[in-house]
Design a binder for these strands. Structure first.
Lengths: 142, 142
DNA sequence: AGGGTAAAGGATAATTTTGTCTTTTATTAT
DNA sequence: ATAATAAAAGACAAAATTATCCTTTACCCT
């Protein structure tokens, strides 16, 4: 698995929220969990984290829920970093603490360009960009 | 984390075994665990798996231990597949079972070329190739 | 044959991740 | 103010991963 289960849910939820919500039309945990087929309460926890990290917004009470300000540009890498941290992009794939460009693990030179590419792709990919394709049913979330 | 902890140990152990052993000079779990700084018994289990899958060889008893026939060409991808399976290379990064080239998840087209590249690199990289650099102290394992 | 050695295998434990349930807090509408 | 709503928060449970220990089996040497 490239991402943790939490991160998978986080990305799918964020895409859904970005597509379906606005500040005047928030979505609830129940709606989200149903839309992306994820465990309700567990998803709640994850969204809580995304909210604390200012990637999504939330409001309690009636007509409350989760939403994303449509002018905020959130990128995939922000979500990944918020949930899984950035060890996927930085820490040695063989778990060696001292692995660096000077003294390398056996897979360092093969991995490095690939994870740079990963970083670039995830940094380019914005939620806004993904919304349209989801709505046109080209992408799906469950 | 790109690999599980088990897989990290497996790769490091395999590289060590490939470099230090021959059919006439096997290495013990104790030596391996020391060389790659891993938990002894846990490493034993992992090597057991690699052995069952014919990636390394083992023999019990005095002067027993683990070894790799030096004419056997083992590639990194074999070890990864043996321990973590191949979901890193094939299954949807967002956990969607129905994700395919026809109907895709939101990151499918960005991920697909990258994991192809991953597959290629890991398929090319053989243990034999890595041994020299480890011995010349360019690579290290703990 | 018998004793020592080292992996194989099974049982158990600790930790982390994933998932559930309940209570509390903030917000809205009446 | 009060009741209803929905996220936040905390406690708890299940499952998976990681790690340890002990017994068994295979092998070698004398």
């Amino acid at each position: 698995m490239m991402f943790s289960k939490s991160c998978e849910y986080a990305i799918r939820a964020a895409v859904y929220i970005a597509g379906e919500s606005s500040i005047s039309n928030k979505v609830s945990i129940v709606q989200i969990a149903h839309a992306i087929d994820s465990p309700k309460h567990f998803t709640g926890k994850i969204l809580q984290t995304l909210s604390r990290k200012k990637i999504i917004s939330s409001l309690r009470g009636p007509h409350g829920g989760f939403y994303i300000d449509n002018d905020s540009s959130v990128f995939l890498i922000d979500i990944i970093r918020a949930i899984d941290g950035d060890e996927l992009f930085t820490s040695c794939v063989l778990g060696l603490k001292k692995c660096s460009d000077i003294k390398t693990c056996p897979v360092h030179e093969q991995i490095q360009p690939i994870r740079n590419q990963l970083t670039i792709e995830f940094s380019k990919k914005s939620l806004n960009e993904m919304i349209l394709d989801v709505k046109q049913n080209k992408y799906f979330l469950k």
